[in-house]
Simulated scan of single mutants.
Amino acid sequence: MKRWLGLAVAVVLSLFFLLTPAVAESDPVPAAANRLSRSGAPPPAAGVIHARSALHPEALINDGSFENGPPPASAWTEATNGTCEWIGDFLGVWGVAAHDGDFDFWAGGYCGGAPTSSSVTQANIPVTATDNELRFWILSYRPDDDDADPDQAYVQVNGTTVWTYDLIQDNDTYPNWVEQIVDLSAWAGQNVTLKFGANSAGDETGNIRFDFIQMEPGQGPPMHTVTSSVGTPSGTIVPPSQTVAHGATATFTLTPAAGYEIDGVGGTCPAGTLAGNVYTTGAITADCEVVANFRPEAGPGPSVLAIPTLAPVGGALLGLALAGLGLGVLRRRRGA
């Protein structure tokens, strides 16, 4: 009896261990998921995506389309305050593919249920005298409510912020990618460090994706037209107009008509200096006009009454006449 009882216990214990799954200490913990919203709700239907403009792959910076994939293959150094990966293929989460290729960089958003701040950085990006216009594409979306603390995307060059974008619902571009342009001519001739990222400051946050980062030929500084005219006649000012770069000056030559002189320079341009008949404006920041004024030349001042003079011969004759007159007066007195 005891033999059969022991056999039964052994069978029951064997079945227990066979049916109970073993728990291994090395089992990985599932990674937190990238989310667009705190609730993890899916985005709305993507709808119609606007056609892209012509792409110029030759202008892409190194791995500018993030097609190397996440680190360590990526040319970008990634930083985040969570455990999620932010370089990847996010079509399944967003319902919208990358602007170019399969991968892009997603900043902001939630890692699990926590708002995230993240960035990507790359050094030694050449900015030349001609190729100094940074172009990139963004897709922004905030399904959660705006909050009081500002959540903001940014671009930095050598630590200097050159572009910002508030992650608020009014700035949503979803489902469209939108191109952004930043003038980097101030860094022409240098190799710079570019940084793209977003800071999530509140309890809720927005989302932004970056893709297709290029360095294109720059358009240069804005140009302004400076015109000239004559206010009070008479004279001329040349040239009649000229185009100058933002912050530069313009120079004009004033020529009074005969009998006139320069009476100052006015107009709407920043005040400048008049040296002789050459006028140079102040720094031009918008279209403006230079007005030349002239006035009649001033006449001679009050004259001193001229006293006539006599030539030497006339003086001698006058002296003889006066002497004769005096002699006659003397004789009359003696005769008296």
Rank of each mutant, 00 (worst) to 15 (best):
L5P: 01
V11H: 07
F16A: 13
F16V: 13
P21A: 07
A22F: 10
A22E: 13
D27M: 14
P30A: 09
P30W: 06
P30M: 07
A33V: 15
R38P: 01
S39Q: 13
G40M: 12
P44T: 09
A46G: 05
L55Q: 14
A59T: 13
A59K: 14
E78R: 08
A79R: 12
D89Q: 14
W94C: 06
A97F: 00
D100V: 15
W106G: 09
Y110N: 14
C111Q: 10
A114Y: 10
T116C: 06
Q122K: 04
N132S: 05
W137S: 13
R142T: 11
D145Q: 13
A148W: 12
P150A: 11
Q152E: 07
V157I: 15
V157E: 06
N158R: 01
G159P: 08
T164V: 10
D166Y: 05
D166F: 05
N171P: 09
D172G: 09
I181N: 09
D183N: 15
A186L: 05
A186D: 11
T193Q: 14
L194S: 07
A201Q: 08
A201Y: 00
D203A: 11
E204W: 02
T205G: 05
G206A: 09
D211V: 04
I213A: 09
Q214P: 00
Q214V: 02
Q219C: 01
V226I: 15
S228D: 04
T232C: 00
Q242P: 05
V244C: 08
H246W: 09
T253C: 10
Y260G: 01
I262K: 00
G264I: 06
V265S: 13
V265D: 12
G266I: 04
G267R: 03
G267V: 02
G272C: 08
T285Q: 10
A286S: 15
V290S: 07
N293E: 03
N293I: 03
G301K: 11
S303E: 10
V304K: 08
L305D: 13
A311T: 15
G315W: 05
L317S: 03
L318N: 02
L320M: 05
L322D: 01
G328I: 11
G328E: 08
R333I: 02
